[in-house]
C-alpha cells in the first residue's frame, strides 16, 4: 500500500515535470523567427495559399491554443485540416509537413538504430568501467592501477567522434575486420546487425567506461576502509566474498545513480556516433530536421528525447530503491 502511494506520488511528479518541459520547449520554438508554413507552402506561394497552409497546420492560432492542441495530440491523437485531412495517431508528437509523415512514425523508423547503439554501449561501458575500477582499487598504487587510471583520463578527454574515427581507421581500413558505416536491422540479419554495431559500441564505451572506472575505484577505496568490511573480514569470510558481496554492492550504488544521470549523455553520444558511422538513427533525423528547419519534427524529437530520459530516470530511481536496503526501509 505504501509502495503504491509512493509510486503514484512519483508518477504525478514526473507528469508535472514532463508538462513543464513540454511548455518550455514549445515556448522556445514558438518564438522562432522563421515561418514553418512558408517552408511547406510550395511555389508559387501566394498570400492566400500561405494563409491556407497556416490554417491547415494550425499555426494561425494563438500559441496557447497550439500548445493545447499539441498536448492533446500526445494523449489522444490529432487531425490536421478539415476537407483533405491527415490523421496523426496517439501518441502524436507532431506532424512533419515537409516529409508528410507523423513524427511518431518517423521516430518508430529511426529509434531502433539509436537504441541499439545506446543499449549495447551502455552494457559494454558499465562492464568495462566497473571491472576496470575494481581492479584498479584492489591493486591500488601499483603499475596496473596507474595504467588503468592513465587510460581512463585519456578516455575522459577524448571526444566520442575522435575515438570513432580512430576505430574506423584502425579496425576498418587498416585491419579490415569490421564494416565502418551503415546499419542493418536486427530482424533482417542479426549477425550483420552485430558487426555493424561493434565499432560504435567500442567508441562510446571507451569514452564512458573511463568515467565509471574512476568512480568505481574511488568508491571502492572509500567503502573498503569502512568498519563493516573489517567486521566481515574478522568473522573469517573469504576475501572474494568480502569484496563481491559486501564491498562492491555498496560501491555500486553511486554508479547506479551516475548512470541514471548519464542517460542524457548516452543519448547524446549515440547521436554523435550515428554521424561518424553513417547510421540513420534519431540523431541523424534531428540534424536533417535542423538543417531543413522542420520545426514540428525538431520539437517532436526533442520532446520525445526528454520524455524518454526523464521516464527512464524514474525507472532507475526505483531500481536504486530495490538495491539499497536503507532506501527501501525509509
Amino acid at each position: 500500500m505504501r509502495l503504491l502511494r509512493y509510486l503514484s506520488f512519483r508518477l504525478l511528479g514526473i507528469l508535472v515535470v514532463l508538462l513543464v518541459i513540454a511548455v518550455i520547449t514549445f515556448a522556445i520554438f514558438y518564438l522562432l523567427p522563421s515561418d514553418p508554413a512558408r517552408l511547406a507552402c510550395g511555389r508559387p506561394c501566394t498570400e492566400a495559399n500561405l494563409e491556407r497552409v497556416r490554417q491547415y497546420m494550425g499555426v494561425d492560432q494563438p500559441w496557447f491554443v497550439q500548445l493545447g492542441a499539441f498536448l492533446a495530440g500526445i494523449v489522444a491523437g490529432r487531425e490536421f485540416g478539415t476537407t483533405v485531412s491527415v490523421h496523426c495517431d496517439a501518441p502524436c508528437f507532431g506532424y512533419s509537413f515537409l516529409r508528410n509523415q507523423s513524427v511518431t512514425e518517423l521516430i518508430g523508423e529511426r529509434f531502433p538504430a539509436t537504441a541499439s547503439i545506446a543499449i549495447g554501449a551502455a552494457i559494454l561501458f558499465l562492464l568495462l568501467g566497473v571491472i576496470g575500477g575494481l581492479i584498479a582499487a584492489l591493486r591500488r598504487n601499483t603499475i596496473v592501477d596507474r595504467g588503468i587510471m592513465t587510460f581512463s583520463i585519456a578516455g575522459v578527454s577524448t571526444p566520442v567522434y575522435l575515438a570513432g574515427i580512430l576505430a574506423i581507421l584502425l579496425f576498418g581500413f587498416t585491419l579490415r575486420w569490421l564494416p565502418t558505416s551503415g546499419y542493418v536491422a536486427l530482424d533482417d540479419d542479426p549477425l550483420q546487425w552485430l558487426s555493424h554495431l561493434i565499432l560504435p559500441w567500442v567508441s562510446v564505451a571507451f569514452v564512458s567506461a573511463a568515467v565509471y572506472a574512476r568512480l568505481t575505484r574511488s568508491e571502492m577505496l572509500e567503502v573498503m576502509g569502512l568498519d563493516y568490511i573489517r567486521t566481515a573480514r574478522a568473522k573469517g569470510l573469504a576475501e572474494r566474498r568480502v569484496i563481491g558481496k559486501h564491498g562492491l554492492r555498496t560501491a555500486l550504488l553511486p554508479v547506479v545513480t551516475v548512470f541514471g544521470l548519464d542517460l542524457g549523455v548516452l543519448l547524446g553520444g549515440a547521436v554523435i556516433t550515428e554521424k561518424v558511422f553513417a547510421i540513420p538513427g534519431m540523431g541523424a533525423l534531428l540534424i536533417e530536421a535542423v538543417s531543413a528547419v522542420d520545426v514540428q519534427l525538431i520539437v517532436g524529437l526533442t520532446l520525445f528525447a526528454a520524455f524518454l530520459v526523464v521516464t527512464l530516470n524514474l525507472v532507475i530511481d526505483l531500481v536504486y530503491g530495490f538495491l539499497d536496503p536503507r532506501v527501501r526501509v525509509s
Partner: peptide
C-alpha cells in the same frame, strides 16, 4: 531535472533558431 537531461539533443535543436 536538468542534470539528467539530453542536453546535446536540446543544443542541436536550438541551433535551428
Amino acid at each position: 531535472v536538468m542534470f539528467g537531461f539530453p542536453t546535446l539533443v536540446f543544443l542541436i535543436a536550438l541551433m535551428a533558431i
